[in-house]
């Protein structure tokens, strides 16, 4: 099985939008006199919250093969009985299952892998940490690392929680 070109295209389109949004945020922050590393930190944390929410949204709505990673997260308790997400649903005909998986792949590619993956960044974060350390701003470098990781994981959890509260994992 080779990667469907439509998914690669969806990822690329999402990636270009994400990169443009990040670039725009960096430009706005520079005009406002905000340090560059704070702009990237902000983009990453907001992107993580959006990732948590969108991951819950797409997985709880479109996953049909029972293999969702939501089963490895606290929100699994709220998805019990939602067929196809955390456990296999033998009532789904194979063609429909294949169609649902394709749909999930394309939408995840566009929104999660592409847009949010491209909006958030590790390389600029790493360069910021190195630049801060090289210019003697060790406290800021340490703060950047701790806040990026801590608030990033917290962002994911907040996003998942918002999804759990405000999205109904209902099925047609």
């Amino acid at each position: 099985m080779s990667p469907p070109l439509s998914t690669v295209a969806a990822v690329a389109i999402g990636g270009s939008i994400g990169a443009l949004l990040r670039h725009g945020t960096e430009r706005l922050a520079a005009e406002a006199g905000t340090p560059g590393w704070i702009a990237i930190l902000l983009v990453n944390v907001v992107g993580c919250a959006a990732m948590g929410f969108s991951f819950f949204w797409l997985e709880s709505r479109l996953r049909r093969d029972g293999g969702s990673r939501l089963g490895h997260l606290h929100v699994r308790h709220h998805l019990r009985g939602t067929r196809g997400v955390l456990e296999e649903d033998p009532t789904i005909p194979p063609p429909e299952l294949a169609r649902a998986q394709r749909q999930l792949a394309i939408r995840s590619g566009l929104l999660l892998t592409g847009l949010l993956g491209g909006l958030t960044t590790f390389s600029s974060f790493g360069l910021d940490v190195v630049t801060l350390a090289e210019t003697g701003q060790f406290a800021q470098a340490g703060l950047d690392i701790v806040l990026s990781l801590g608030l990033g994981v917290m962002g994911i959890l907040v996003g998942l929680e918002l999804g759990r509260r405000f999205l109904r994992p209902s099925r047609s």
Partner: peptide
Amino acid sequence: MVGLCGALTTFSALAL
């Protein structure tokens, strides 16, 4: 830097 490296790398997937 902004485009290719920025989007090749990711923080949200790492945090997830």
